[in-house]
Design a protein around this nucleic acid. Structure first.
Lengths: 205, 205
DNA sequence: AATGCGATACAGACCGGTACGTTTGGTCCC
DNA sequence: GGGACCAAACGTACCGGTCTGTATCGCATT
C-alpha cells in the first residue's frame, strides 16, 4: 500500500495510515451491510469476514457493535451535508433556486438502484430505545435538517419560516420512506411541485 | 370468559371462542411488543411468556414468527381503515372537510404518549427483503392509502388528482416518521396547513 | 549487529445467552 | 378417545464479545 516509498521517519505516518486503512475497511463494509440488510440482521462475524479483518481489530476501533452502527450514521450524516453544501454552492441565485436544487437532488436519489431509504430513519426504526447511540445521531441529523430548512425559509422571507420548515421536513422525510410507493420517475416532480405549493402558500398567507 | 352461559350445543362455539381467545391473546401481546420494541428485538419466548401461553399454541396459530409479524400488520391495517372510515363517515360535507378530518386525526395520533411511528413503515424498515411477509402487507397498505387519497383528490376536482395524491402520501408518511422532530402540538397544524397548500396549488395550476 | 519492546494485525477457539422452532408428556374437557 | 392447552426440555444455529496465541513491523537499547 504505502509501503512503496519507505522514507525516513515514516513510522508514525505509515502506522497511522495502515491503521486508518483497517478501520476504514471495517466501517465501509459494515455501512454497506447495515444499509442493505439492516443493522440487526448483520452480525459482527459477517462484517469481520467480509472486511477480511480480525474480530479483535473491529473491537479495537469500535467499543461495541452499537458504536459501529453510530459511526456508520455519523459518516452518513457528514456525507449528506457534504452533498447538501455542494448543491447549495452550485445554486447561489437565491433561496428558491437552492431549495429546488435540494429537492431535485433528494428526489433523484430515491430512484437509484439499491436505494433503501434514509439510513437515519431506518436505524431509528430498528432501535426504538431513546438512548441508543444510533438513535441519538439520527435525531440530531433530523434536527440539523430542520435547522437548514428553516434557514432557507428565513431567506425566502415568508411570514412563518418555522412553519414552512416543518412542512418541508415532513415532505422530505416522507419522500425518504415512500420510495417504494412512488415511481422512480415521479419522485422529483412530486417533490418539486409539493415544495412549490408549500412555499407559495407560506408567501400568500 | 364465555363460560357463564353453558347452553346445550355450545361445544363448537365455546371451543371456537376459547381457541380464538388464545390466538387473540398471542396476537395482542405480540403486537404491543413488536410495536414498542421492534419485531427483531422481541423473541417468541418473550411473547409466549407475556401472553401466558404455551409455545405450541403460538405455533399452532402462526406458522412462523414472520407470519405472526404479518398478522400484526394486517390487523393494524384493518384497524387503520376502520378508523379512517369512521372519520370519513363523520365528515360528509365534502372532500375538503373529509381530508381535513383525516389530517387532524392522523396528526393527533403523533402526539400520543408511546407513539412510535407507523407500524407498516417501521416493519418495512426492519425487513428489507422484498418478499418478507411483513413487507408485502406494508406495501399493500401504502398502496391502499394512496388509492384513497386519490379518491379524495378526484372528488376535489383538481386537474391532476394522482399528483396531488402522491404529494399527500409523502406528507402523511413524512408525519408518521417525523413525530420525534415535530412538537406534539405542532403536528396537526402543520399537517393541515401543508395539505391546504397542496390542495390550493393543485386547484390553481 | 543483535536483542527486545510495543503496537498492530491475523486466525480461531471460546463464553454465556438467545434465536426460532420441534418434541415430549401431562392435564383438562368434550 | 381426541383436541386444545400448558410446561419444559431440546436442537441447532447464531448472537455480541473476550481471549489466546502467532506473526510482522519499526524503533530503541545493548
Amino acid at each position: 500500500m504505502s509501503r512503496m516509498a519507505p522514507r525516513i521517519k515514516t513510522m508514525a505516518e505509515d502506522d497511522a495510515a495502515a491503521s486508518a486503512e483497517v478501520r476504514e475497511r471495517i466501517l465501509r463494509t459494515a455501512s454497506e451491510l447495515f444499509y442493505r440488510e439492516g443493522a440487526r440482521a448483520v452480525g459482527v462475524d459477517l462484517v469481520v469476514e467480509k472486511a477480511g479483518v480480525a474480530k479483535t481489530s473491529l473491537y479495537r476501533y469500535f467499543r461495541t457493535k452499537d458504536d459501529l452502527i453510530a459511526a456508520f450514521l455519523e459518516r452518513e450524516d457528514e456525507e449528506f451535508w457534504r452533498q447538501w453544501d455542494a448543491v447549495a454552492q452550485r445554486h447561489r441565485t437565491g433561496p428558491q433556486a437552492e431549495l429546488d436544487a435540494h429537492m431535485a437532488w433528494i428526489g433523484e436519489r430515491l430512484g437509484r438502484k439499491n436505494y433503501r431509504g434514509c439510513p437515519q430513519l431506518n436505524m431509528a426504526a430498528e432501535f426504538p430505545e431513546a438512548e441508543h447511540p444510533a438513535r441519538v445521531v439520527a435525531l440530531s441529523h433530523k434536527r440539523e435538517l430542520r435547522r437548514r430548512l428553516k434557514g432557507i425559509a428565513d431567506r425566502l422571507g415568508v411570514r412563518h419560516p418555522d412553519d414552512l420548515a416543518a412542512q418541508l421536513l415532513l415532505l422530505v422525510n416522507g419522500a425518504f420512506v415512500s420510495s417504494q410507493a412512488i415511481a422512480p420517475k415521479e419522485a422529483v416532480a412530486v417533490l418539486l411541485a409539493a415544495s412549490h405549493a408549500l412555499v407559495a402558500a407560506a408567501r400568500g398567507s
